[in-house]
Structures are given as C-alpha cells and as structure tokens.
Amino acid sequence: MMRSIAAWALILACGLGVAGGAGAAEGLVNAKDFQADARTAAKRRVPILVLFSSPDCPYCDRVKREYLVPMHKDPAYRDRVVIREVTVDAGTPLKGFKGGATTQGEFSADHKVFMVPTVKVFDTQGDPAGDAIVGLLSADYYFGYLENAIDEGVRKVRGK
C-alpha cells in the first residue's frame, strides 16, 4: 500500500511538472471509436475508463490535470485501463461499443450522464463495470475512488 502511495505521489509530481502550463486535455484521447477501443482493451484484458467532461468545467480540468493525464501517461496503467474522454454536449461523431454511429452528446445521454465531471468504467462489451464517479467529490480521496473503479473493472474483465 505504501509503495502504491509513494509511486502515485511520484507520478503525480512528474505529471504536474509536465502538464503544468499545458492545457488540461493534453495527453487524454478523445473517444472516436469505442468498438476499436474495446478490441484493444480485450487484448490487454483491461476495462475502459471514460471521463465525461465539458470544455467550460474547471472541475473537469482538475480531474484531467491532477489524475487522469498522469495515469494516461504512466506505463504502469497501460496494463490496467484504457482511458478516453467524451464531451457531453458535443456533436462529434462517435462509434459506440456495438459499432453503431452516434455522437459524443448522444452517447452521454444514453449513459445518463448529466453532470460533469463523471467517470464511468466499462468492460470490453460496453457494460458498466461499477458505479459512476460523479463530480470531483473529495479531492483527498478522489485518487482512491478512481483506483477502486479501475480495480472493479479489471476484476470484471478478467473474471476474478
């Protein structure tokens, strides 16, 4: 446990140093094709974490900058999760988990996301792997909430 906390502190410090003056979204992949993402996740035997965000949301920027961008850039997370971002009100084309054409906004509505930031973890079939993390909640515990959601997704995908 202490090793995990120390590793996260180092990752966070490096991530903040790298992303300090940069836009918060740098380093996150905007969702375009969940069917392809699901194939990648299935090969790695990992879940897909989706951040539902909005461009004018300071809490979304904070979640990206302090948590998800450092995770996305950390090679250790490659074996634990695929991370994507969806803009809740965007008309940006998106291929859903079943291959159907939709938009990021429609995908958000279909998954009942009406508040940002919202983080949902999906299995490789596109089914939710646990409860959503809605809002920033307590910043002191947010990393733990993300870790628990990822762990739950990994258990579901790997059948453990």
Rank of each mutant, 00 (worst) to 15 (best):
Asp37Ala: 15
Asp61Trp: 06
Val69Met: 06
Ala38Arg: 09
Pro117Val: 01
Gly126His: 05
Ala38Met: 14
Cys57Thr: 02
Ile5Asp: 10
Tyr59Lys: 08
Leu28His: 03
Met71Gly: 01
Thr102Ser: 15
Ala109Glu: 13
Ala90Thr: 01
Ala25Leu: 08
Met115Arg: 13
Ser4Phe: 11
Ala41His: 12
Met71Trp: 09
Val157Met: 09
Phe34Asp: 07
Gly100Met: 09
Ala19Ile: 00
Asp61Ser: 10
Ile83Ser: 08
Gly91Ser: 09
Lys98Arg: 11
Val82Glu: 10
Ala7Thr: 10
Tyr142Asn: 04
Ile83Met: 15
Ala90Lys: 13
Leu51Gly: 00
Phe114Pro: 00
Thr102Trp: 13
Phe143Glu: 05
Asp61Val: 05
Gly105Phe: 04
Phe34Met: 11
Gly144Val: 04
Ala19Pro: 00
Thr87Tyr: 04
Ala41Gln: 10
Lys32Gln: 10
Val81Arg: 07
Leu137Asn: 13
Gly91Trp: 01
Val154Thr: 10
His72Lys: 14
Ala149Asp: 00
Lys112Arg: 12
Thr103Arg: 11
Pro75Asn: 11
Val82Thr: 06
Leu10Asn: 09
Asp61Thr: 08
Glu66Val: 00
Gln125Val: 02
Asp61Ala: 14
Ser53Val: 02
Ala76Cys: 00
Pro128Gln: 04
Ala132Met: 12
Pro58Arg: 08
Ala90Arg: 11
Gln104Arg: 01
Glu26Gly: 06
Gly91Arg: 07
His72Val: 09
Ala9Tyr: 12
Val18Thr: 06
Val113Pro: 04
Asp79His: 08
Arg155Met: 15
Lys156Phe: 03
Leu10Lys: 08
Gly96Lys: 13
Gly21Glu: 07
Gly21Lys: 09
Phe114Tyr: 14
Gly27Gln: 08
Ala25Glu: 13
Gln125Glu: 12
Lys95Met: 08
Gln35His: 01
Val86Thr: 04
Val86Cys: 08
Ser138Trp: 03
Ala129Asp: 02
Phe107Met: 05
Glu85Phe: 06
Phe107Glu: 05
Leu12Gln: 12
Lys156Gln: 12
Lys64Ile: 00
Lys43Cys: 13
Cys60Asp: 05
Arg65Tyr: 04
Asp74Val: 01
Ile133Val: 13
Gly17Met: 10
Met1Arg: 14
Lys73Tyr: 14
Glu152Arg: 14
Arg39Glu: 08
Val46Gly: 02
Pro58Asn: 07
Leu51Asn: 07
Lys112His: 14
Gly100Ser: 10
Glu106Ile: 05
Val29Ala: 11
